[in-house]
Computed example of a mutant assay.
Amino acid sequence: MKKPVFKWENIRERRTWRLFILFIFFILACVSILFSLSKGAVDISWSTIWTSLTSFDMESKQQILWNIRLPRVIIGALVGVNLALAGAILQGIMRNPLADPGIIGINSGAGLVGVVILLLFPHLEFIVPIGAFFGAMGAAVLIYVLAWKRGIQPVRIVLAGVAVSAFLGSWISILMIFYSDRVQGALMFMVGGLSARSWNHVEMIWIYSLLGLLFAIFGTRWMNILLLGDETARGLGLSVERTRIIMTAVASLLAASAVSVVGLLGFVGLIVPHAARLLIGNDYRLLIPASCFLGIAVVTFSDTVGRLIMAPVEIPVGVIMGIFGAPFFLYLLRRET
């Protein structure tokens, strides 16, 4: 009598397992948020956090919570959601586990427009999200065109994205050299950080996050059909190219809104959806919320580590993500090629 062969895929396909992992991601997101609210130059107990959120007696610690940490944590959570969703969408429509808004150049398109506005028209900072969206969308279209040769191949997407990212990054560097007297405000934008983020930045990003999330949820059925392959998807009545254009626009909106607030924060869109997919599978009905919760946990926790690891000096969250994200990218590159 043969013993049953253990297969990870069989475990991952079970609905109870998927719901369990989704619940774990939700708990991780909540714990990371509470950890980020409580830890810093001044530690705040969880009981004080609860009291501060339910009353309006503004003591010193409550002032710190409401005016400094809470908007920063909210922005970190929304950025985590946006970049994770953008990565999940791009990996699906391009059928490439290495696709990420930062790696394939979408962030650079958004970043170039953002730097132009910040350096040349600083009084128009409020239009950065809209400008960054058009920059991201333009970069996505350019990458798509360069990578197209009788269809889309994963390697061409990565190579075209790296080339476009390097090209746009060069123009960002040129602008910073020519306007070196104004470069201080753009430095954090280039690195990617949450320092000094306020309620004004929350107002800038939340509507784009909400719209992007709603569009991503609405497009889960399309994404699942695309996973079957282009020919099968066409046979089921799906307009493949139109779907790719629409979902690329959604990913660009999500990535651009995140870039406009925190700058060029990389690797979130690569690590988070890939890790979620390894544990929960390819079903976008579950992958979307899983990426959201895990994105919140990764960004808020990384930001807290950046604040604490060399306190009182603060390391931007973009640096922390680069330290852990680059080895993960190399691992994926060797695994997939």
Rank of each mutant, 00 (worst) to 15 (best):
G325K: 12
L28P: 00
V79W: 13
S198Y: 02
P273W: 05
A196Y: 06
R242P: 00
I288N: 10
V299T: 06
G295I: 00
E9K: 14
L278C: 11
I104M: 06
R72F: 11
H201S: 00
L213Q: 02
W17Y: 00
A186K: 06
G109W: 04
L85Q: 05
I205H: 07
L118G: 00
M1N: 12
I130E: 01
G229M: 04
R15C: 07
W50T: 11
F215Q: 07
I103Y: 07
W222P: 00
G169F: 05
L159G: 05
G263D: 06
F121H: 12
L19P: 01
I21Y: 05
W50I: 10
L19D: 05
E9C: 09
G263T: 05
I309L: 15
V313Q: 08
V113M: 11
L98D: 02
I44Y: 03
A249S: 11
L210R: 08
L19T: 02
L227Q: 14
L22C: 08
L278V: 10
M310H: 14
I177K: 15
I103M: 03
A276T: 06
E203T: 08
G263H: 06
V145P: 04
R95C: 03
S257E: 13
E125V: 13
F329I: 07
D57S: 11
G151F: 11
V113R: 06
V313W: 05
F25H: 09
L194G: 00
L112H: 01
L228D: 15
T54Y: 02
S55T: 12
A110V: 15
F56E: 14
D283W: 11
P312S: 04
L124A: 09
G263E: 04
I271W: 08
M94S: 15
Y179K: 13
L168P: 00
P129K: 05
A258K: 13
M321G: 05
I104Q: 04
V240S: 05
I44L: 07
H201Q: 02
E314N: 05
L85C: 03
V298G: 08
L228V: 13
T51C: 05
E314V: 01
V319G: 02
T232S: 15
F189H: 07
G169R: 09
N107S: 11
K149V: 01
M204D: 02
R335K: 15
D100F: 02
G281L: 01
I89G: 07
I245M: 14
L19M: 14
L120F: 13
F35S: 03
V261H: 01
G151T: 11
L226E: 01
V268H: 02
E13R: 14
